[in-house]
Simulated scan of single mutants.
Amino acid sequence: MKTELLTSKDIQHAGGLLKAGEVVAFPTETVYGLGADATNELAVKKVFTAKGRPADNPLIMTVADVQQLDAFVVISEAAQHLMAVFWPGSLTIILPTKPGKVSMIVTGGLQTVAFRLPDNDVARAVIRAAGVPIVGPSANTSGKPSPTTAQHVWHDMNGKIAAIIDDGPTQIGVESTVVDMSSKVPTILRPGAVTQQQLQDTLGVTVIDATSTKSVASDVIPKAPGMKYRHYAPDKKVIMFDRLDALDLKRILQSNDVVMAQDTTIAVMQLSLEQSWSLGETLENATEQLFAGLRFYDDEEQITTIYVEKMSPIGIGKAFNNRLAKSAGNQEFSI
């Protein structure tokens, strides 16, 4: 298959491809997604094939406006409130499906489905052109670091999908927060830019944070992506480290090791440009750069180990540490 590289000028063409049952990678503010008509089972199966994704890993349905949800799910008053505050944006909401309205291929066999309305004009325009909600998992090979540029998508998906829409690098760099609104107590299943405190302040009730670096049991169907299978991991070894251990790490670094860290840590370690990847000065900078750095070093043949600095577990730093722990298989540097 020949994969077309499109731009924001090709919205109608991309919509036509989706209507024809093809798979098109599209930009969002978080990471690039792999789009297909969510109401077309054959098209959805192409997404699983392109990614090499397990069949019991549910897909997120991506919409252009709230009205597109009405045919598929039951929307509680609390969920409507979240949508009013955080959509468009990086919050995915799990809701109970209406009987027979959503394919079990999309839900992973569950009676719930996740929806998101992205804060990206191109993404919403493509969905409108398609005329239906589209599935939107990250546009990478399953288990590997998520793509934050069209070039990352091309690396993984060239020859596997019909087209890629290039809208430049994403702004946030990690996937959306996933909150389960189908249970009695709102529960975060994946951390992202929307925090537990923001959700609690909006809903006025306790929101449970059930996120963990551990995977769910092998016989359990996960409610959200990223909960069960190996995720975000390059082929190279990734090891987390704490800023307090930076100088100890510097003493054991080998010539084929690299460090991804914030600018102050790189300065303390006195690392050269060849030895380091800047995660910037803020938590937002770090999150935006995480997957890009992992992907870059994974393609550098001489590199064997990537050491990545952990962030303060506040705000989006919690999402950063969640993705990093999964990338590293929970391996931490110790003296």
Rank of each mutant, 00 (worst) to 15 (best):
D248K: 15
V74R: 12
K2Y: 02
T92G: 01
G317H: 11
Q254G: 05
G192K: 09
L249M: 01
Q275H: 04
I335Q: 14
R53P: 05
R295Y: 09
G89K: 01
P88D: 14
I239K: 00
S90T: 05
K2F: 00
S218L: 09
I316W: 12
W154R: 10
S278T: 15
P186K: 11
T7V: 07
P169S: 13
I127N: 03
T206N: 10
Q67E: 15
G52M: 08
Q197T: 13
V185A: 09
A246E: 00
P96G: 13
E300G: 06
N158Y: 12
Y232A: 05
G173Q: 05
F333P: 02
I306R: 02
P96W: 13
G15P: 02
G159L: 01
S183Q: 14
G33Y: 03
T149F: 12
T39K: 11
L91M: 02
I252Q: 15
M1L: 11
D201E: 15
E281V: 00
A267W: 04
E288A: 12
I161Y: 01
G226C: 06
T49Y: 02
G100K: 12
V207H: 04
T202D: 00
P225G: 13
D121A: 05
Q302F: 11
G89E: 02
V259I: 06
K318Q: 15
D37I: 06
G317L: 10
W154N: 10
A162P: 02
F26K: 04
G136E: 08
D257C: 02
T213S: 14
T170F: 01
L199K: 10
P88A: 13
K310Y: 07
S212R: 04
K310V: 04
N40F: 04
S334T: 07
V126I: 13
L253A: 10
P118D: 13
T170G: 09
K326M: 11
M227H: 03
I105P: 01
P137Q: 11
A292R: 05
D299H: 13
K326G: 08
T39L: 13
P99Q: 12
R323D: 05
Q171S: 14
P99H: 10
S276R: 01
Q200K: 08
G204R: 03
T265I: 01
I266S: 08
G329N: 02
T282Y: 11
A193T: 03
A261W: 02
D166V: 00
T97H: 01
H81A: 05
V31Q: 14
V63Y: 08
V74S: 13
A25M: 05
T287E: 13
R53D: 06
I239Q: 12
G108Q: 02
A224L: 10
I252T: 15
T282F: 09
K51D: 09
F48K: 10
S276A: 12
T30L: 06
V122T: 14
V258Y: 00
A139D: 11
Q196A: 07
T282S: 15
S8R: 04
